[in-house]
Design a protein around this nucleic acid. Structure first.
Lengths: 203, 203
DNA sequence: GTCTATAGCGAGATAGAC
DNA sequence: GTCTATCTCGCTATAGAC
């Protein structure tokens, strides 16, 4: 069950996920936590403080998780494989938290928003650097590294939108599928990705 | 400028996008529309009614747009190209509306939710049918059609998250890039997509 | 550390004049 | 069709007893 603070946090995660942050009242969180709403303020300074706690710890855990998964992995293809695998797995295992991270940032005031975005940017940079490096070293097909990294990251993040923990496929199975899907597309022997320069543009 | 109802709708789209649905007050919408909040109720029965109007017309326009883009297109590769292109283009051109469609469904009561999801399911079925057909007819690499269709659709939808109308790339340029990215991956001569059956599963 | 009670405010929606 | 005025409600947060 955990400490009272953990119980409150867990209740908030479920409610923010189900009803959204702004539609969730402190009284809802209190009810699901088995306490009165005034008691929440002993553990958290405000409603936003709960949201910030959820968002920051999720982002920190994600950064720590991918670092641990990349530790000791040597060549760039295997690094990319490990990174995609870690990203998808984490998004299946922390589905509610990452969906909140995706849609409730508008609930943060300026300073908290900055802190969160700094963590998120550091995370995304790891992918962009990996892709750029793979292209520069000739292991990946060349192309617009920014767009490619957006395409890959958003596709993998979106797994959290449709993944069903009680469904046909496990998180490990899906992460295996995405790992192959992304890496097989990026590898040099596949078609070039720099289609853009050779396309007929309409405008 | 349009009718008062259109002005209200446009103000609501901007606010729901910027602040979220639940964080937006009728007084905010009224202020941005240049009227008093009571006047809104002459045009809309409730706040949810505004949200529902935005969501439904967006989904209907999306369905109509893709149908018009697919009209007369014959072979499956070109259909897939046209569909991806249409989807990405629409998500660049109606960025705010589709982001609201992605994150504010929890603001709908049961019946309105059902109506919206019916439209959305009809839309997504077009992609799934196209992918299944392409696989069955041997034009696309085989694989888990459901997961592939999720991967493709979510990747293309997410363009709305990062597209910048005043940025380096136009909507047409991005839709060209995604068209190539998806279709070149699906085509038969590329690597097989049924990696799943041949993977070593951990569980 | 949790409670009851409540302050202080702003929300969605309605009534009825013009 | 828009206005002013207001109803009713529930919100975040605080005070202070235990």
């Amino acid at each position: 069950m955990g400490t009272t603070k953990e119980v409150i946090k867990k209740a908030a995660i479920n409610l923010f996920y189900k009803k959204s942050y702004f539609a969730t009242a402190m009284s809802n969180i209190a009810l699901d936590s088995g306490i009165r709403k005034a008691s929440i303020y002993h553990h958290y300074a405000s409603k936003e403080d709960i949201l910030f706690d959820i968002l920051m710890t999720t982002m920190e855990e994600l950064n720590a998780y991918i670092d641990s998964c990349l530790k000791g992995v040597e060549n760039i293809e295997n690094q990319m494989r490990a990174a995609i695998r870690a990203h998808v797995k984490f998004h299946c295992d922390h589905q509610k938290e990452v969906l909140i991270s995706d849609s409730e940032l508008r609930g943060l005031t300026a300073n908290n928003f900055k802190s969160f975005v700094a963590q998120r940017d550091a995370y995304e940079k790891k992918f962009q650097d990996m892709i750029t490096k793979g292209m520069d070293q000739g292991y990946f097909a060349t192309g617009d590294a920014k767009v490619i990294s957006y395409a890959i990251l958003t596709m993998c993040t979106a797994v959290a939108h449709w993944f069903n923990p009680r469904g046909r496929l496990s998180g490990n199975q899906i992460s295996t599928m995405y790992e192959e899907l992304v890496v097989s597309r990026l590898l040099r022997e596949s078609l070039p990705l720099n289609f853009f320069e050779t396309s007929v543009l309409e405008e």
